[in-house]
């Protein structure tokens, strides 16, 4: 099953490679990984998406907790939660019809066109991973020049929180 694990860790060089190294050393897979400092500059929040049986996920969370730089973690998929991912997608648009269609689709998906050139549009889109996949799918008859995705981040609903 797919799990989103959010980790608070010491904002120190090497902390990220400890997490990444753990996954490669123990043969776990990482689908996506995103990391940035939090409002407390001594802490980083890392969110990763992984897949595995319950037993594998249990080991992953235990092994992560064992890393000395990991302060606290939360498996968001065990709680009601919101997940978001951001995508920037650059499309070739060659005529007015194509421009109109991209604008219309972007609007349907609640995206924005954030860059325009003579032959390209860049669309910014936020949502869960399925929604981004669906947008890429719906653009299949366009020439997609490049796609960049942030990786998944998430937050629990209600009172549940990952904080110290």
């Amino acid at each position: 099953m797919r799990h989103i694990i959010s980790i608070l860790m010491e904002n120190e060089s090497g902390a990220l490679s400890r997490v990444a190294g753990l996954f490669s050393a123990r043969g776990y897979n990482i689908e996506s990984l995103t990391v940035a400092p939090t409002e407390d500059p001594t802490l980083s929040r890392l969110t990763l998406v992984t897949r595995g049986s319950d037993q594998v996920i249990e080991q992953i969370t235990k092994q992560l907790n064992k890393l000395v730089d990991v302060v606290k973690l939360l498996d968001l998929t065990e709680h009601r939660h919101i997940e978001r991912e951001m995508m920037l997608i650059k499309l070739k648009v060659q005529d007015a019809d194509q421009r109109a269609e991209v604008m219309r689709m972007a609007e349907i998906f609640r995206g924005h066109i954030i860059d325009v050139s003579a032959a390209t549009y860049v669309v910014e889109l936020t949502g869960d991973s399925d929604k981004l996949d669906a947008f890429v799918e719906s653009m299949s008859h366009f020439e997609v020049i490049e796609v960049v995705r942030s990786g998944v981040m998430g937050i629990a609903r209600g009172d549940v929180a990952l904080k110290l």
């Binding site: 037993q55 080991q59 235990k62 064992k66």
Partner: peptide
Amino acid sequence: VDPASISKNVK
């Protein structure tokens, strides 16, 4: 003492 040793190989 190590939680990660528990149920690692054998449930």
